[in-house]
């Protein structure tokens, strides 16, 4: 999804799915851990993922205002 899709928002959705897959593994393996270190790790990952989503969407809105498209193949210039 992150590699093949050409829409910036769908790439972001793919990143969220990947982060959730990693979180699910950490939670599942911390089930037998008395100190639930995996769960604490996942808690911080969720917060960082929320921050990442906010910044990424702000960048997407900015790119859209500049290029009038969010197709990743057409965004190929740093300056106009």
């Amino acid at each position: 999804m992150v590699i093949t899709k050409r829409n910036a928002v769908v790439v972001l959705i793919g990143i969220e799915l990947i982060l959730n897959a990693a979180n699910l593994n950490l939670v599942a393996f911390s089930r037998n851990d008395e100190a639930i270190r995996g769960q604490m790790f996942v808690l911080f990952i969720i917060v960082v993922a929320a921050a990442e989503a906010a910044v990424a969407l702000a960048i997407i809105v900015n790119v859209y205002n500049h290029y009038k498209t969010i197709n990743l193949d057409q965004i190929d210039q740093l300056k106009d």
């Binding site: 093949t4 899709k5 829409n7 928002v9 989503a53 997407i60 809105v61 009038k68 969010i70 197709n71």
Partner: peptide, 22 residues
């Protein structure tokens, strides 16, 4: 946030931002 992002970026030059190509 994602749905707001989709709605804010829906109108484009070729008018197909709501469809995804691979």
């Amino acid at each position: 946030l994602l749905i707001f992002g989709i709605m804010l970026t829906s109108k484009t030059k070729e008018n197909n931002a709501l469809t995804v190509t691979s």
